[in-house]
Nucleic acid binder design. Structure first.
Lengths: 372, 372
DNA sequence: GTCAAATAATTCAACCAATAAACAAATCCA
DNA sequence: TGGATTTGTTTATTGGTTGAATTATTTGAC
C-alpha cells in the first residue's frame, strides 16, 4: 500500500528542507544565491538563509567569492558544494583488475587507483585484502587532501544478498563471500560502513550522474557475463532480494545453445563478450530481442550500452534497433533511444562512490549532526 | 536523482501524520485504540488524539461503540474506517461487458452493476454513453446510501496515454478515444474527476488489496490479449509513458507465428485465450519463458495469474514452474511463487475504484479541507 | 556626488504542530 | 472501598516556517 510508516516531526521538516536546498544547489547549472534558491524551491528567503547557514557551518556548502553579477541591487553571494567535506570511497573488483576511487560532494574524482591483475587464481580473501590495501591508500590520500570519507561501496560482478554477502560471482569463481567482513579486516577501513552491490547496478548509477538527462533507463553491461542496472525515476531498482537486472539469462532462443546456468538460449550465449566479436549481427539480434522484452514490460524510453558493448556500439546499433522497431508494441507511438555509455570502465567504481555521496546529499541533516 | 522538489511546512507534517494514522487503522486487523495507534506509529498519545479528532470530524473514522475489552485500566475506544464517507467509482469497459461499482473507504463493494453485451459493434461513443448511464445509476444509488463519490477510474483493455486518452484498444477496435471527455458528457458524472488506466494495471491493484500479502508481484491477465500489471513495493509501476506491462508481445519464439502486431513469436500467439484451450502445454511453456524473463529482470517474487488464466491454473502451473526453474538464474536461491488470482472478472473494476479510495487514504488532509 | 530604486540577506514576532509531563476518566482486582 | 492500571486530555515547551520590517550593497539618474 506504499504505507507511510514513520511519524514526521519538526526535525523531519528541517531534514527535508536541508536536502531540498542542497539538491537545488547541486542540480543548478550556475552558483545560485539564497534568493534564487528561495524562488526555485518555494521556501521563503528567511528559511533558505537559515538552512544555508547550517549547510555552510556543516561544511557542505561554500560561498563563492566573486558572485555572478546581474543588474542593480545588492549583489548575490553564489553558493556551491564544497570540495572539502564528505566523500565516498568507490571500490570495484573484477576479473582482471581492482580499483578504488574517492569522489567528493561535487562528483569530482579526487583519487583513483587501478591495479590490473587477473583475480581468478587469487581467491576472495587475497583479492579483497589487495583491494583493501588499495582502498586504504585512496582514503589516506583523500583525507590528506581535506576530505572526510564517510563510507564505501563495492561493485562486484555477481549476485549480492542483503548485508553485502556475495552469493555467487561466477567469473571470479566466488561463492558466499562476506566482503564487508573481509574489508573490515584492513585497519584503515575498519570504521567505514561498506555496502556491496552488483557491478551493473552501480555502473548504471555512475551513468546517471554524468548523463544527467533521462532519469529512467536501462544500463546494459556486456562483460563476460551480461548484467543490467535498471534506473527508474532516478532511483536504482534492485528488486526485492537485490537480484534484478539478470538480463544475461533472458531467453532469446528457447531451444538454443546451452548456457552455463543450465538453461538453453540465454542472451549471454549470443551476446556475451566471447561471442560478440565473431558475429555482431547475431549478437545485435539477440540483444534486440532481449531489450524489446524490457521495453514491452517496463516502458523504458532509454537504453544505454556499456561495458564491452560501448566500443561495438556502431556495429550493434542498427541490428538492435531493427528488432526494437519490430518487437516493441509501442515503437510506433514513441521511439526507444539507444545510447553508448560515456564513462567506460570506471562507471561501476564511480557509481559506487556516488552511492555514498548520494546518502549525504539525500540526508544532509545526519551529516550535520555528526559534524557537530 | 529522486530529487526532492517541494518544500515542507508544518501543514505537510500534519498531512503526513493524518495519513499515517489513517493507514494504521486501515491496515490493522482489529479496531485499534488511540493508544494502540500511538504505540504502532511512534507518535505520542496526545498527537494521535488530535489527529483522530480531525479524522472523526471529517468523517473518515468512527469510534466503535463496544470497544474490544482487555485486562485492567480504562477501556479503549476502538476506531474504524467509516462506511459512510468518501467512495470511489470503478468502471470497466471490455469486449463483452460494461461494469460499474462503488467501493467505500473500507474497501467494501457497495454498488455493483454489470451489463453483458458485445461492445465491438457499438463503437466508442455508444459504449461510453452506455457506461455513463450505468455509472450514473451506481453513483446515485451510492449517494442515496450516504456515500460521497469523490472520483472515478476506468479500466480499458488498451494503451492509455497521459490525460486518459485511449491510444488504441485493439480488441474493441478503438483508436484515439478521449474517454474522460465522453464520460463528462453524462450530466450525473460531469463533476467527477475521471482517470483511465489499463485493465491489467487496475486488476493488479484489485488483487493487491485482497491479497494484502506481498507488496511486489506481477499480475498477468489472459484475455484475448495478454496484459500485465506490475506492482512494485505496493505501488503500480506504469512506466514513463504509461505503457508498461505489455507482456503479450514479449518474444518467446523469435521465428515463430506472426502476431497481429507485426512481430513473430509473441507470447500472445501461444498463450492468448484463443490458443490456450487447445494446447495447454505449449501455452504453459510460452508463459514460463516470458515469466522467467520478468523474474530475471526484476527479481519479482510472486506471480499472479488472472483473467482467463485463473480457471486454467491447475493445468498451466506445472509447465510454467518447470520453465521458471530452468530459466530463472536465482531459482536455486529463492523460489518464485505462482498463484491464481482470487477476484475473478471484477478485479479491474474494483482496482479502479480502489485508486480513488487510495487517493483519499494517502492524502486525507485534502479531503478534510473539502469536508470543512 | 548624492539620492532613489532595486535586489540580497537578516532579524523578529507570530503561528502551528509535535512533545513531555501532569491530570482526569474509567475500569479491574484485592 | 481503594489502589493499580490503562486510556485519553490538558497545558506548557520546543522547534521550525512564515511574513513583515530592517539592514546591506549595488546601479543608475540627476
Amino acid at each position: 500500500m506504499s504505507a507511510p510508516t514513520t511519524p514526521v516531526r519538526q526535525a523531519s521538516v528541517r531534514a527535508h528542507n536541508l536536502a531540498l536546498v542542497l539538491h537545488t544547489v547541486a542540480n543548478s547549472a550556475d552558483h545560485p544565491s539564497r534568493a534564487a534558491i528561495a524562488a526555485a524551491t518555494g521556501l521563503t528567503r528567511a528559511t533558505v538563509s537559515a538552512l544555508v547557514d547550517d549547510l555552510i557551518a556543516g561544511g557542505l556548502l561554500t560561498e563563492i567569492d566573486p558572485p555572478p553579477r546581474t543588474g542593480a541591487g545588492r549583489p548575490a553571494a553564489g553558493l556551491a558544494l564544497t570540495s572539502a567535506g564528505p566523500a565516498g570511497l568507490g571500490l570495484e573488483i573484477n576479473v582482471d583488475y581492482l580499483a578504488a576511487c574517492v569522489v567528493d560532494l561535487t562528483g569530482a574524482v579526487r583519487q583513483r587507483f587501478v591495479e590490473h591483475d587477473d583475480q581468478r587464481p587469487a581467491g576472495a580473501a587475497r583479492s579483497l585484502t589487495a583491494l583493501g590495501a588499495l582502498a586504504a591508500r585512496a582514503r589516506l590520500a583523500a583525507e590528506a587532501d581535506g576530505l572526510t570519507v564517510t563510507g564505501a561501496a563495492l561493485a562486484v560482478p555477481g549476485l549480492v544478498a542483503d548485508g553485502g554477502l556475495i552469493r555467487v560471482a561466477p567469473n571470479l569463481g566466488w561463492q558466499d563471500v562476506d566482503a564487508p567482513a573481509l574489508l573490515r579486516g584492513v585497519p584503515e577501513l575498519a570504521d567505514l560502513p561498506v555496502t556491496v552491490d552488483n557491478e551493473a547496478n552501480l555502473a548504471a548509477l555512475g551513468e546517471l550522474r554524468v548523463t544527467g538527462g533521462d532519469p529512467t533507463f536501462l544500463y546494459v553491461s556486456g562483460e563476460i557475463g551480461i548484467g543490467a542496472g535498471l534506473v527508474l525515476d532516478g532511483d536504482l531498482y534492485r528488486g526485492v532480494r537485490g537480484w534484478s537486472g539478470e538480463i544475461g539469462h533472458l531467453t532469446v532462443f528457447p531451444d538454443g545453445r546451452l548456457c552455463r546456468c543450465g538453461a538453453n538460449g540465454c542472451l549471454e550465449q549470443y551476446a556475451g563478450q566471447e561471442f560478440l566479436a565473431g558475429d555482431e549481427p547475431l549478437a545485435a539480434r539477440a540483444l534486440g530481442i532481449a531489450l524489446s522484452a524490457v521495453v514491452n514490460l517496463l516502458d523504458v524510453p532509454v537504453i544505454v550500452l556499456g561495458g564491452a558493448y560501448a566500443p561495438y556500439f556502431g556495429r550493434l546499433r542498427g541490428g538492435i534497433e531493427a528488432e526494437l522497431d519490430r518487437r516493441v508494441l509501442t515503437a510506433g507511438l514513441a521511439p526507444v533511444t539507444l545510447r553508448a555509455a560515456t564513462l567506460g570502465a570506471d562507471a561501476a567504481m564511480r557509481g559506487a562512490a556516488d552511492t555514498v555521496i548520494r546518502a549525504v546529499r539525500d540526508d544532509p541533516a545526519s551529516w550535520l549532526r555528526r559534524a557537530g
